[in-house]
Simulated scan of single mutants.
Amino acid sequence: MFLTYLRAKLAAEEDLLGRPALRTTVLRPGGLTDEPGTGQVTLGRSVDRGSIPRDDVAAVLVALLDSGSDDAVLEVVAGPAPVEEAVPAALRRAGPA
């Protein structure tokens, strides 16, 4: 059942990214926790498995919106980098999806 969910999620991402008129950035968080956010993350095209507080996912989403990012697929888990540094660094490394 979980494999079916993952396939559907990937198909939805590919559909969105395939629409050139739609500005899209996909954020794939690790396991979500209810712990308070730390403001520290690991963000990139591919990151090791892990968990992340929902607060930190929200902070990354806001930073991505503020950056005007487009056509990126990023993964995020808790980590050592401040969100305000991790987002621009990840976008530089990621390039187009």
Rank of each mutant, 00 (worst) to 15 (best):
Met1Ile: 08
Met1Gln: 11
Met1Ser: 13
Met1Gly: 15
Phe2Asp: 15
Leu3Lys: 13
Leu3Tyr: 08
Leu3Gln: 13
Thr4Leu: 12
Tyr5Leu: 14
Tyr5Phe: 12
Tyr5Ile: 06
Leu6Gln: 14
Arg7Lys: 09
Arg7Val: 03
Arg7Ala: 12
Ala8Ser: 09
Leu10Arg: 14
Ala11Tyr: 04
Ala11Gly: 05
Glu13Trp: 01
Asp15Tyr: 06
Asp15Pro: 00
Asp15Ala: 15
Leu16Asn: 00
Leu16Ile: 00
Leu17Glu: 07
Leu17Cys: 03
Arg19Val: 07
Pro20Trp: 06
Leu22Tyr: 11
Leu22Ala: 07
Arg23Tyr: 03
Thr24Pro: 03
Thr25Ile: 06
Thr25Asn: 08
Thr25Asp: 08
Leu27Cys: 05
Leu27Trp: 08
Arg28Glu: 06
Pro29Ser: 10
Pro29Glu: 04
Gly30Met: 00
Gly31Arg: 11
Leu32Ile: 11
Thr33Ile: 01
Glu35Arg: 12
Pro36Tyr: 07
Gly37Tyr: 03
Gly37Asn: 03
Gly39Phe: 07
Gly39Ala: 05
Gln40Tyr: 11
Thr42Leu: 14
Thr42Pro: 02
Leu43Glu: 08
Gly44Asp: 10
Gly44Leu: 03
Arg45Cys: 02
Ser46Met: 01
Val47Asn: 03
Ser51Trp: 07
Ile52Arg: 12
Pro53Cys: 03
Pro53Asp: 11
Pro53Val: 07
Arg54Gln: 13
Arg54Asp: 00
Arg54Val: 11
Arg54Gly: 00
Asp55Ala: 15
Asp55Asn: 09
Val57Cys: 10
Val57Phe: 09
Ala58Arg: 14
Ala58Cys: 09
Ala59Ser: 14
Ala59Met: 14
Ala59Cys: 04
Ala59Gly: 12
Val60Gln: 12
Val60Cys: 08
Leu61Gln: 14
Leu61Thr: 14
Val62Arg: 15
Val62Asn: 10
Ala63His: 00
Leu65Pro: 00
Leu65Gly: 15
Leu65Gln: 13
Gly68Val: 02
Ser69Leu: 04
Ser69Phe: 02
Ser69Met: 05
Asp70Ser: 12
Asp70Trp: 12
Asp70Cys: 02
Asp70Glu: 15
Asp71Ala: 12
Ala72Asp: 03
Val73Pro: 02
Val73His: 04
Glu75Asp: 08
Glu75Gln: 14
Val76Cys: 01
Val77Phe: 04
Val77Trp: 06
Val77Leu: 07
Val77Cys: 05
Ala78Tyr: 08
Gly79Ala: 07
Gly79Cys: 09
Pro80His: 13
Pro80Ile: 04
Pro80Asp: 15
Pro80Trp: 08
Ala81Val: 14
Pro82Ala: 14
Val83Arg: 07
Glu84Thr: 12
Glu84Trp: 04
Glu85Arg: 15
Glu85Lys: 13
Glu85Phe: 06
Ala86Glu: 06
Val87Gln: 05
Val87Asp: 13
Val87Lys: 09
Pro88Gln: 09
Pro88Val: 08
Pro88Ala: 09
Pro88Cys: 11
Pro88Asp: 06
Ala89Val: 00
Ala90Glu: 02
Ala90Thr: 02
Ala90Gln: 05
Leu91Asn: 10
Leu91His: 06
Arg92Ile: 08
Arg92Tyr: 03
Arg93Ser: 13
Arg93Gln: 10
Ala94Gln: 06
Gly95Lys: 09
Pro96Arg: 15
Pro96Asp: 10
Ala97Asp: 10
